[in-house]
């Protein structure tokens, strides 16, 4: 029974609650780093490592961190792990470092990581938090790689830097430029809706529950949402 629930914690991040395509979190890196499969994979793995580490660490400290300063504490913990990852990437994977550029330090403010810290790790034990981080991170990586595959193969006629000769005459430059990213992302979200026959718990609008910044709202309930209703 215990194993089963642990398994579902891990699996929900990959499909049912995929952070990119279902929860619509972490849109900035999704759009910016998916011009190449290599960059997307690097981004996904870097975020995965930070996500697991910060989830475990925050879960360990969840009873010590005072409630009213928890967001700054989480941010510092996350920034610490991002710095470690940044140094490792700079030292061993210079190619990925040059592809990601400023988006590597920006993992600190990636909504997925803070969102999981706030919504999951601060309420659950270490094992579950680690599994949740792993599931969400893999879901994020898969979604990024899928999107990068479409954009790189059809937009640039290459795959991870290797040219695909028969596609070269037909490449659609538009896809690797910034508008193409937004377009592919929108189409993919609609496609997920069609494939799941509208049954996926797709967030059709930005709401407080999934709002990446909800964690830092001191008010607890989002005032912006109150305005709209």
């Amino acid at each position: 029974m215990q194993n089963k629930s642990n398994m579902s914690v891990f699996l929900k991040g990959i499909l049912k609650e995929n952070p990119v395509l279902v929860l619509i979190l972490g849109t900035c890196p999704t759009l910016a780093t998916t011009t190449t499969v290599t960059g997307a994979f690097g981004m996904g793995i870097a975020a995965l490592v930070v996500l697991i580490c910060s989830n475990v660490f925050i879960s360990l400290l969840r009873k010590i961190i005072p409630d009213n300063v928890r967001i700054p504490c989480y941010i510092v913990i996350i920034a610490g792990f991002v710095t470690i990852v940044q140094m490792i990437v700079k030292a061993f994977f210079p190619v990925i470092d040059s592809l990601l550029g400023v988006y590597l330090p920006l993992i600190t403010v990636n909504c997925i990581i803070l969102g999981r810290a706030e919504m999951f790790a601060s309420k659950n034990n270490v094992v579950k938090s680690a599994l949740d981080g792993m599931g969400m991170g893999i879901g994020f990586t898969l979604a990024l790689c899928g999107m990068a595959f479409i954009r790189e193969v059809f937009g640039n006629a290459t795959f991870a830097g290797i040219e695909i000769p028969f596609l070269v005459p037909y490449k659609i430059d538009f896809l690797v430029k910034s508008p193409g990213g937004l377009l592919v992302f929108g189409m993919l979200i609609a496609l997920v809706y069609v494939l799941t026959h509208g049954k996926a718990p797709i967030k059709r609008e930005f709401s407080c529950a999934g709002c990446p910044s909800a964690g830092s709202c001191h008010t607890g309930s989002c005032q912006l949402k109150g305005d709209e209703q």
Binding site: I24, L182, L183, F185, G186, M187, I189, A190, L191, Y193, V194, G198, I202, K203, R204, E205, F206
Partner: peptide, 11 residues
Amino acid sequence: KPFQGIAITLI
């Protein structure tokens, strides 16, 4: 229907 909400916003 599939495009309602976030999808059409992104496009």
